[in-house]
Design a protein around this nucleic acid. Structure first.
Lengths: 259, 259
DNA sequence: CGATACGTTGATCCATTTCAAGATTGGTGG
DNA sequence: CCACCAATCTTGAAATGGATCAACGTATCG
């Protein structure tokens, strides 16, 4: 997505301009984009980690991330596991509308701003706007596709590959919404949280972070990820972006031949 | 679900009687159940493994499993990874309707029978039957919830726990649709495929299967799983069925206190 | 009866956990 | 400005889980 295009979209739709950006946003007309924007009746700003929605809670609203990042967190026997990451533009608990209650917690990572949509309004939308309904459904299916990629990454890779995949995916997704730089991106996750997302101990994550740094694949330091060699990163993580269903050239079949 | 209730439902709706059985099926009226049943224009029977849909393929129909089981398979560098399992009643590539193309393969395991629904008919349904649309969406969200549970299982458990969780989940899901027995269930997966689903080598899966057998937790032999002690199985796999959103007593909060 | 797929076993090596201790960093109040 | 604190990051050594390689056993079926 071209930077000026993204800026224009954000000027017009300051709250939801990043929704499906880089994916199926082009499938929305201006009227539809306006409808989505008008769903947000209320926003909230956080200066640090904050729980958006809790497991078991029954919800009457859904949340979109406007600024900052969020994680899906599951707690088992006091240990914390991250099962998903979300960035600006992501409708993070849209599934709460149809599931009624959540199976996990949603928390912001560091400061951020979110918008709320009452489920009543979603109900109306679903009845009267089947095309938008389908796009919202699509958004939840993207989450499921990402889940599947996490599963296969956990099944096939050791810690280095898992971390590389996480970084590669995050870089790509931030790129969709205009928040990636040429040389890397900001990531509000410390080593503890990286280990929670990769299924390792923090001690081992520390050594893994060092591995990637020393092999010139990625430098993670104080909330900033710098990537000297994207090719090496993608190779180590077995990253092929087709599962993110991005616009443009990212189609199934474009991946590396041996993958 | 009571056995006679299930039999009655299957007598009335032989193709789709298991759809959402044990979960939100009660939310469908008889008219809606009839509509779903009438979606199936064609069925197909397989006497062994068969590819239902392939990665990258653009689909014009979706598939429901009537008999047998299916797996979501991702192939990376010639290695095979199972990222999901499905049983009778599951609408296995419903997401293909909104995603247009799939990010993974769908294959039946052993013999089975499936039904096909043209996407045209889904389109009409989505416009005219918002309540059913929401239930179909719910079905894809269940898949996502299962994905998340697989992620957290891979992150926290060693091979024994992963296998135990897989067995516990499958037993529970088969129970929803009336295909579980008191002492176990049939599972058309050999040790190779179990290892593909648990992210281990087949050699190690062999030792893991033996571990569970020798510790009196589960006996896996030629397509049949016998479970002497469900409590031990659930404990080893950290299994709490609330994420399956079953009817009845399975609510969030009912899990073991220390979980 | 031999092919073939699947299951089993042992030995060695590597990835990762575990436990224990220190070092660095970014605040905070005196 | 410094002392101190809490959180985070770092390192080392020993123990364990799992991969790897190589071989052999055992069903099943035409």
């Amino acid at each position: 997505m071209a930077p000026d295009q993204i800026a224009e979209e954000l000027a017009r739709y300051p709250l939801t301009g990043r929704f499906l950006m880089g994916r199926a946003r082009h499938a929305m007309g201006e009227r539809e984009k306006g409808l989505i924007e008008s769903l947000i009746e209320e926003t909230e700003t956080f200066d640090g980690p904050h729980t958006i929605a809790e497991r078991g809670q029954s919800l009457d609203r859904s949340t979109i991330i406007i600024e900052g990042m969020a994680a899906r967190v599951m707690t088992k026997k006091r240990a914390r596991y991250i099962v998903g990451l979300h960035m600006p533009g992501d409708f993070v608990d849209l599934h709460g509308y149809a599931l009624k209650r959540l199976d996990h917690n949603l928390v912001t990572l560091g400061p951020g701003r979110v918008g709320y949509v009452q489920h009543d309004r979603l109900r109306t939308l679903f009845r009267e706007e089947p095309h938008l309904a389908r796009l919202l459904w699509f958004a939840t299916l993207l989450d499921a596709a990402i889940h599947r990629e996490w599963i296969v990454t956990l099944e096939r890779h050791t810690a280095d590959g898992r971390l590389a995949h996480l970084l590669a995916e995050t870089w790509c997704r931030l790129g969709f919404v205009g928040l990636a730089d040429d040389d890397g991106f900001d990531l509000p996750l410390n080593q503890i949280e990286l280990s929670n997302a990769c299924g390792t101990t923090t001690v081992h994550m520390n050594r893994t972070v060092r591995n990637l740094r020393e092999s010139g694949i990625a430098v993670i330091r104080r909330g900033r990820v710098t990537i000297p060699d994207q090719g090496k990163l993608n190779a180590l993580g077995g990253f092929d972006p087709s599962y993110l269903y991005g616009d443009g050239a990212l189609r199934v079949g474009d991946e590396l031949a041996d993958d």
